[in-house]
C-alpha cells in the first residue's frame, strides 16, 4: 500500500512538473507623454577624446515610447549646426527623470564644436524640449577628458533658442 501511495505521489509530482506555467506576458504599453519636457541637468561633456565626445543631460521623464533617442545637433559654426548624432536609450517608466547620453563620433581634435540637444521618440516624434546652444572643445591628439564629469566642464552655454 505504501508503495502504491509512493507511486501515485511520484506520478502526481511528474504531472505537475509537466504542467504549463503562467500565461504569456504582454509587451507593456508606452507611458503617457509628459505635457512639458524640461532640462533638469544641463548638457555636459561626460567624456571626450580627440575623436569622440559623449554629451549627457537629464530631463523630466518625457513618456511616450520606451525607446527614445537623445539627439545632438552640432557643427563648428554656431549658426549652422549641420550634423546630427543620435543615440538610443530606454525610458524607465518608474523613474521621474531620464538621463540622455549621446555619442558624437568622428570629431576633429582641438576643435570647438557648438551644439544643442533634443529628445525624440523612437518613431521620430520630437519631445517639446527647449535647449540652449552650448560648445565644447575636443582635446588634442591622444588626449582624453576622463569620464568623471564636473558639471559643465568643457561646456559653455552661449545662447538660448
Amino acid at each position: 500500500m505504501n508503495r502504491l501511495i509512493l507511486t501515485l505521489a511520484m506520478t502526481a509530482t511528474m504531472a505537475a512538473l509537466f504542467l504549463p506555467n503562467r500565461a504569456a506576458a504582454q509587451v507593456p504599453p508606452p507611458a503617457k507623454r509628459a505635457k512639458h519636457v524640461r532640462i533638469v541637468e544641463a548638457p555636459q561633456v561626460e567624456m571626450s577624446t580627440d575623436h569622440l565626445t559623449i554629451i549627457r543631460w537629464t530631463t523630466n521623464n518625457p513618456g511616450g515610447s520606451d525607446e527614445h533617442y537623445g539627439v545632438v545637433q552640432y557643427g563648428t559654426d554656431p549658426k549652422d549646426l549641420n550634423k546630427t548624432a543620435k543615440s538610443p536609450i530606454r525610458l524607465n517608466q518608474g523613474h521621474a527623470h531620464t538621463t540622455f547620453r549621446v555619442r558624437v563620433d568622428d570629431l576633429e581634435p582641438q576643435t570647438t564644436y557648438y551644439y544643442r540637444v533634443a529628445t525624440e521618440e523612437s518613431g521620430g516624434r520630437r519631445d517639446p524640449l527647449k535647449s540652449p546652444i552650448s560648445k565644447f572643445i575636443t582635446p588634442g591628439p591622444g588626449e582624453r577628458i576622463p569620464a568623471s564629469p564636473q558639471r559643465g566642464r568643457g561646456v559653455q552655454p552661449i545662447a538660448r533658442q
Binding site: 561626460e46 559623449i54 537623445g70 543615440s87 538610443p88 530606454r90 547620453r101 555619442r103
Partner: peptide, 11 residues
C-alpha cells in the same frame, strides 16, 4: 558595432 549603441548604460 557602434551603430545604434544603447546609451542607457555605460556610466
Amino acid at each position: 558595432v557602434t551603430n545604434n549603441l544603447d546609451m542607457t548604460t555605460g556610466k
